[in-house]
Design a protein around this nucleic acid. Sequence first.
DNA 1: AAGCTGGGCAACCGCAGTGAC
DNA 2: TGTCACTGCGGTTGCCCAGCT
Length: 307
Amino acid sequence: MSEIKKGPWKIEEDEVLIKHVKKYGPRDWSSIRSKGLLQRTGKSCRLRWVNKLRPNLKTGVKFSAEEERTVVELQAQFGNKWARIATYLPGRTDNDVKNLWSSRQKRLAKILRTSAPQPSKPQKNINREPPILQEVHSVEAPKLNSLAEESSLSMSQYCSSSYMNNFDTTNMVSLPELVNSTSLPFEPDLFQLEFTPNEKRTCIWPQFPLPFPQIPLQTNFGHPLEHQELHMKLEETDFLDYFGQLSASDIGNVQVPLVPSCSGPVRRSEIVVKREMDNPVTPDSFIDDFPMDMFDYIDPLPSPSEW
DNA sequence: AAGCTGGGCAACCGCAGTGAC
DNA sequence: TGTCACTGCGGTTGCCCAGCT
């Protein structure tokens, strides 16, 4: 048997493959080699067909913002089930979706990495904000990208964000933890942005008793908050809107479905707004280029101006 | 102009599921 | 029931090219 050929496909090879599929349908991939038609493995032939030769593919067409949003939402829902996600995007292959996601994560990681303050020694969750919040404080305005039209997000998107996807249910974060800088559920490795697919993910707010713990919240803006005040402010934010008509005391063990909802408007992070004041950049350009899940993460926090 | 870097993309690899025997 | 071949999927790698220095 001749050597197995690898590497880029030639036009002639494509033609042979197309002929085979026309004749026998998209199957019997192994027979292509056994018949001596091509020196490619069956797997290689199938991959070539699925990713490049199949009809109705959007080859060379960039993902639209809508498609990108769909990918983000479905990834939150299904995890890294690229083939499954691709079925929701006509003309897109699992490889396309996978590459898109990979690029997106690289882009985000770079934004976070390049803007991160370099600590002299790693400190583990001591008197610090969640790392992501720190990054957001200092991040520089990136260039625009296709996510530019992202302007409103829901709390459910927060729960379905890729950040949250980093956590197994064992890593669920409570709201008090989120706002309490002395108790952090995050690990520095979060910035590796490696995900743990988990189809049954739910966003659980374990034991969210109100009023909040008697720990003054020390923000980056130097505004200690008493829990009652924070409670009041949180109620004013639309983050509680997510929970619909639940009273605050009902929120103790809410399980939030990960399917993104179309709930009401959610403001951009006030933290980002604060930072914009410190480092004026064009607001839109600053906001718009962030991966939407970055805002997902920080949306629930109340506005410093409201404190 | 040359070298470097990063993003996008195509293709390969390894593993798992499934069905035929 | 076990084995094998085939197929599908997700992770990873490597190439190409545009933009930057």
